[in-house]
Design a protein around this nucleic acid. Structure first.
Length: 282
DNA sequence: TCTGGGGTCCTAGGACCC
DNA sequence: TCTGGGGTCCTAGGACCC
């Protein structure tokens, strides 16, 4: 597990040497923006100019880490992601601007980032199976996917103007455990919660953050999942405090009325540590 | 696939305030 | 005060992603 993480770090270090703007999406995925280094007359010329860089990146990763990488070169994040998935292990795919609409046409709607099982079913129910179907759809998309409709339609035509997200701001931190056997044993649950509180507190400490909201999550044997949260005025980061609030939530809401399959503790509303105001001696 | 863990974002309802 | 409208915050759940 840690080996995986370390490998990821090493690869990302190679990626950083490319000089591109980088948004790391997950351990094994990142967006690179070369547009600043390679402004050309047309966007397709800019994309072509990025090809040698992509090849070099693959070579470097292969030579230094003995790993393959799939790269998609395109005019925006949406297309680049699909392009990188196009030839999965060890691929390099370029999607020129002028080809993007055709490139997308045969793909299933599910290929669109954000279309999961539920949305896919909603679309298929209206006979929208491929991105091409989506391009051609003349009906009211809003009735199907709500406020997402305009953006979804633009994606279908390969239009995406999301900027790279360069900050690594965390919105939430959590820790959860699924039990081998469902349990309502207070001692087991207490120990588990304590460990999770310590876990979360440790991450908060490393990230130099404090939390305003504490959340507990429970799952029962029938997979019913409930969450309860509480927001406090003074942000906290201490494991004991986290534990105390979480335990309070569990008790207040009587969540351990049945054996639990899963127990989790999370925090959000993350803020930098408040400069604890010392009372001024008068 | 009777289902692991850690995340993000969106929506809807209720409380509360003016 | 049983009653309009709008804004904000909090909460809970769900869809989705890696």
């Amino acid at each position: 597990m840690d080996a995986y993480r370390n490998e990821s770090r090493a690869v990302m270090a190679i990626v950083r040497e490319s000089g591109a703007l980088i948004e790391q999406v997950s351990v094994d995925e990142a967006y690179l923006d070369f547009s600043r280094q390679h402004q050309r007359a047309t966007s397709d010329e800019s994309l072509l100019a990025a090809l040698p860089l992509a090849r070099k990146l693959k070579q470097d990763i292969s030579a230094q880490r003995k790993l393959t990488a799939s790269i998609g070169v395109a005019g925006n994040k949406f297309l680049a992601k699909l392009a990188s998935d196009f030839q999965k292990p060890n691929g390099l795919t370029l999607v020129p601007e002028r080809d993007k609409v055709l490139f997308l046409r045969p793909m299933p709607v599910r290929a669109i980032h954000g279309v999961g099982k539920v949305t896919e079913q909603v679309l298929v129910n209206s006979a929208i199976r491929t991105i091409g179907d989506l391009q051609d759809y003349g009906g009211d998309l809003r009735a199907l996917v709500g406020s997402w409709a305009p953006a979804l339609k633009r994606l279908a035509f390969g239009e995406d103007d999301r900027a790279l997200d360069l900050g690594d701001e965390r919105k939430s931190i959590s820790s959860e455990n699924t039990f081998l056997r469902d349990t309502a044993d207070r001692r087991v649950l207490r120990d588990c919660l304590r460990e999770q509180a310590a876990d979360v507190a440790e991450t908060l400490r490393r990230k130099r953050l404090e939390a305003q909201t504490v959340q507990v999550k429970v799952r029962y044997s029938d997979f019913t999942t409930l969450t309860r949260q509480i927001t406090v005025e003074e942000a906290i980061a201490d494991a004991n405090e986290l534990y105390r609030l979480a335990a309070h939530l569990l008790a207040r809401e009587k969540l351990v009325s049945r054996p639990l399959r899963l127990l989790g503790l999370g925090v959000s509303g993350l803020v930098p540590p408040t400069a604890k105001q010392l009372p001024l001696p008068l």
